[in-house]
Amino acid sequence: MPRHIKISLIVFGIGGAIAMGFFVDIVGRVRSMVNERETEENPFKPPAQPLYAPTDPPMAVKIFFPAVSGDSLLVAEDQTIFKSAEIANRARQILQKIQEGPGHDTMVAPLPKETKVQDIFISEQGTAFIDFSDTMATAHPGGVLNELSTIYSIVDSLTYNLPEIRQVKILIGGVEKETLAGHCLLLLPLDMDLSITNVMPHEEKSAQLK
């Protein structure tokens, strides 16, 4: 083999090895970034604040869960949270109750088990922006009625118990999604809808009591 071809091959070989090294390094870095994002234990994350103070009084709430059978899509279950000073913390407690699931087997859990609430923000206009983890969409089993139950379990539980929240805007994985599982529109904030529950609105209830 001529000498210059040998030299060229050696140069190409060295170049290829360097390129491969870079590529492996880049792939490794990207993977480590993805892993870092998925890792829950971020050393820079501030320690979790308690959602209520020991002196906060208890507060009765109705948590709406999908019914196993019957005419109502959602059925209310009476539960208790603590009346923390911040509305966002009360909302977090309600969402925690939804995540924990119902206490009766006539109802089912509306959210996939691994779903996490990443953040909550309540605007001055009374719109609660709730950011759920991606799992809420990826692990959702599908079905229009099922999707409707998941969404309104959140919307109705928050708007019924916290009058400061008038509408709920659901975000998934930190971003706005068109739908949760291909059906219900999430691009606009959603209002309370008690027509699919076994509970009547506050004003109708108070009118009946009079």
């Binding site: 059978s69 089912v108 089993p141 599908g142 079905g143 229009v144 099922n146 209002d191 809808d193």
Partner: peptide
């Protein structure tokens, strides 16, 4: 669409229309 209910015995179907007055606000 096909349905999916958590209740394994359920076999109902639904005809959906758009929620009235949705988005008008």
């Amino acid at each position: 669409h096909a349905g999916y209910s958590a209740n394994k015995l359920d076999h109902g179907s639904s005809v959906f229309v758009m929620k009235e007055n949705f988005g008008q606000a």
